[in-house]
Design a protein around this nucleic acid. Sequence first.
DNA 1: ACTCATGTTCGACAATCGTCGAACATGCAC
DNA 2: GTGCATGTTCGACGATTGTCGAACATGAGT
Lengths: 101, 101
Amino acid sequence: MELYEPDVAAVPVTTILSALGDEARLEIVRELHRDGERCCGTFDLGLAKATRSHHLKVLREAGVTHTRIEGTSRYVSLRRDELERRYPGLLSAVLATAPTP
Amino acid sequence: MELYEPDVAAVPVTTILSALGDEARLEIVRELHRDGERCCGTFDLGLAKATRSHHLKVLREAGVTHTRIEGTSRYVSLRRDELERRYPGLLSAVLATAPTP
DNA sequence: ACTCATGTTCGACAATCGTCGAACATGCAC
DNA sequence: GTGCATGTTCGACGATTGTCGAACATGAGT
């Protein structure tokens, strides 16, 4: 079985920005940036399974993440290169860590 | 009279991304990027005045734009330097022009 | 086969968002 | 003053979104 993952260049930039503009989803992206590939279940966001699944779907359909299926688990990772090629600097800007009081 | 404009560093990045993640608002940002300062009424987005006013407020309160009052008109501009200092490369990445279907 | 673990999908719900017309505020010009 | 132009604010409305529990699907292990 295959999961739908759009071509990054075909996704409106507003869709990507909206996907990143949610606290839960951005936290997922931060952890993916820090850890690389992660199994779905390892995201502890204080949300129900259904909600987490929804957020991962939004990120995937925005072209932000790639999902690899292995058994009953799904491994998620950032589509760094493709994002960087289409929107150079976007990811690093969004992930810019700084004194956020 | 003064308009509330937050410190960019105090605005959650998700707020900025959500503000940019709307087609009408991003179009405003694009035109500001191209033209520099613009008078509110010069944005022809095919929307009602009230809606345009709402979008400009969202952008302003997200720290994206600055508004200067002159008579009954308001002149809007991008807060480029402050955004660049807090999120280097964000604006140019978002405005990356390319085949956006 | 049965069970367990991992996720997704299906309603449903409340909250937020984008949109509008109408009313209001403010400053300029006559 | 009276008008006029520029914008904002105030409900209101429908659409979208984030959230959840329950049901479902799938694969691994016993």
